[in-house]
Simulated scan of single mutants.
Amino acid sequence: MAALCTRTLGKVGWSLLESPGVRRPGTVSSLAGNLSSFGSRRSFGTGGSGFRSKLLSLRGAGGRALGCAFLLGGGLGLYQSVKMSVQQHLAQGDTKAPAAGLKLTLYQYKTCPFCSKVRAFLDFYGLPYEIVEVNPVMRKELKWSTYRKVPILMVADDVQLNDSSVIISSIRTYLINQDKSISDILRCYPEMKSVNDSGKEVTEYLNKYWLMLGEAEITDIYPEKGMQKEEMKWRQWADDWLVHLISPNVYRTTGEALASFDYIVREGKFGNFEGFFAKYVGAAAMFLIAKRLKSRHNLQDDVRQDLYKAVNDWVAAIGKKRKFMGGDHPNLADLAVFGVLRVMEGLQAFDDMMKNTKVKHWYRHMERETLNHGGRN
């Protein structure tokens, strides 16, 4: 959510500064260049370069000033907010968790729903992992990788897993059957590149919602008919639909956009100068972008209704006889949906969702399961 905003504002700023007749100020370059980095890592994975586009182009001194504002507000300011969360994160409790010998490093944006999905999965299964917060504007922390998106999960510093669903499926497969290495399992999710209708190159991963298990293992993990297909269906639903409802709802109105950025600034303990740009310039830009997203995904005028319907559809699919989609314990679909919804916590959209849908009971149970590492058993 905030990561989308930061990257977009950074692109806007650079577009303004690089427009004909606009000279890039040295002060902005030095400020952006001094954003902290966590160093480089060697990559043995594969991936394509990120896609960059210019959102607008303005000329003259006015464009230069506005470009500076966008870079300072959307880049430096918002990044310092998420940088407050940079930490060495180790799951608490029993070190005898399954596959605890794996050294895991997660490259992420804290408020990215796909990254939140991966954290929910790792926390639920009690897997220790280290977090590297990526600067959404400069992305220096990913300079070692040809794959420029997050999340990325590094295993033992030499195996790179890309795409949140591939990460989850690969690690879950390994937890069930450790006869094969992570590298061997990763080969079951081949990368496929194509060009979409807009002419943009996109990367997809085959089989990413499948666990690579033998027949006996599948029967053990999915004892009832249809459980595996149901899990896969709702994992894909979280990626293809639910995640696209987040930004339009968080930045639905100018007031909500301001409140969202006020929350981000307050959490980051900004100085007055940085806080001003992050809040007002960022909120204005994301309000406009949210309108575009609403049109792109054919959402209703009141996007809350799409969010409410999606969440209630999820609760209805679980039904009254099950505690989770997975039964008595969460499955991968539960963790995916929880991870996506969690990024709205602290904002009006989240409060409205909890008040006007039937999701609260399930959501609170999921909170406890992830905090208590319920998947260890």
Rank of each mutant, 00 (worst) to 15 (best):
C5L: 15
A120W: 06
M325N: 04
S43L: 04
P136Y: 03
S295W: 02
S198G: 09
E369Q: 14
S53D: 06
Q92S: 15
E18L: 13
K355W: 10
S260D: 07
E224R: 13
R187N: 15
R52Q: 14
I185E: 05
G48V: 13
S260E: 01
G39D: 06
G74T: 03
K180M: 13
D123P: 01
S247A: 15
W237H: 10
S49K: 15
R292D: 05
E215V: 08
S40H: 12
S169G: 09
D197N: 10
S29V: 13
A257S: 11
L335A: 01
V150M: 04
D239I: 06
Y363A: 10
V303K: 00
V340N: 03
V86P: 01
P25W: 07
N34G: 10
S145Q: 07
K110Q: 13
V343M: 07
N177H: 13
Y209M: 12
L17V: 06
E217A: 03
V82W: 05
L104V: 05
F276Y: 06
I289R: 06
G339F: 04
I289V: 10
E191L: 15
L127A: 10
S30D: 13
T254S: 10
L55C: 08
S198F: 11
R23C: 11
F338M: 04
S30P: 02
F70C: 10
E369T: 05
I167R: 08
R235C: 11
G126D: 05
A99L: 04
V82A: 06
K110D: 15
Y222N: 00
F350E: 07
G47C: 12
H297G: 02
D220W: 05
L186D: 08
W210F: 14
D239A: 00
A156V: 11
K110L: 15
M227S: 14
R23W: 11
G50D: 07
G282S: 03
L213A: 00
F51T: 14
N34I: 08
R59N: 15
I221N: 05
W314Q: 02
L242G: 02
A316L: 13
G47P: 09
V315T: 09
D306P: 04
T370K: 08
Y174G: 06
F338S: 01
G214L: 07
E217K: 04
E204P: 08
R235D: 00
Q305Y: 09
R342C: 11
D313N: 14
P25N: 09
T370C: 15
K149W: 01
M212Q: 12
L293I: 01
